[in-house]
Amino acid sequence: MIVFERRMEANALWTLSSFIMAIVAGLAASAVLIASTGANVPDVFGALLQGSVGSPKALATTLVKATPLILTGLATVIAFRAQIWSIGQEGQVFAGAMGGYLGAQLLAGLPPLLFFPGVLALGMAAGMGLGWIAAVLRNRFAVNEIISTVMLNYLVVYLLSWLLQGGPWGETGGTISYHQSPMLPDTAFLPALFGSSRLHAGVLLPFLAAAICALVMSRTPLGYEIRGLGYNPEALRHKGVDIARTVSVIMMASAALAALAGAIELFGVSHRLRADNLIGLGYAGIIVGMIGGLSR
């Protein structure tokens, strides 16, 4: 028997100090890079601090920027905890925005209390469709989800590109054709939380989603199955858990979270469908998830 003598469980203090050390190390590395360009390091860090949390406006911007990352991070955590290596968050963000945009046309004119839940739900449904395809490929044909989700990402990204450029959703008129849709009517803008600030109501959703995810993971039978699937799928199969069904549920739930990020970006930030502001949100979510929930 191989037994390495080790700390049985990482205690909270150790975990915290390792986070702090990692941040310090990151800052130190940045400092070296900044210094190498000849800039004044304290000035740069000061500006960084000022620009992110230094004023109410800066803080609001930070929250707005963090919103999609928290959601795609959660999407990653849910899938990866079950050892499902879905890399589909990127495409699902796009799908969420596209589903939301389609919803905005279909549901135009509804009162806000119906309109916003409706369009966000349609965005999530579009993402779930993508998650479902990857789940079926995995369950029925044993296609590795890393491959299927990455390929689906391309599909969705280029579909949007086509829709916007020459396709039915592109902005027409004028002399230049940008890679974007026409502006949504301002009734379709997510309302601001305080007056006319950029802080739209969508920033609350990641916090709600995180709380729900935490509860689901730690307290519900589904969370139990997700964790169990990550640890030992064979035991779960022997004890009556329908693995294929659980995989589908997980991939669709994960996709819904990522898609919500895309929909919120559309209705809260860009207010028109475009590709450039969505790029990388899904992939960054994988990093966020790894740092936040998976490194343990």
Binding site: P221, Y224, E225, R227, G228, Y231, N232, E234, A235, L236, H238, K239, G240, V241
Partner: peptide
Amino acid sequence: FREGLVPEFSVAENVVLGWQR
């Protein structure tokens, strides 16, 4: 340890394995 238990789960969690719902 492969088919009968989830080793990472606690004793309590394993006692209800399969009956979690």
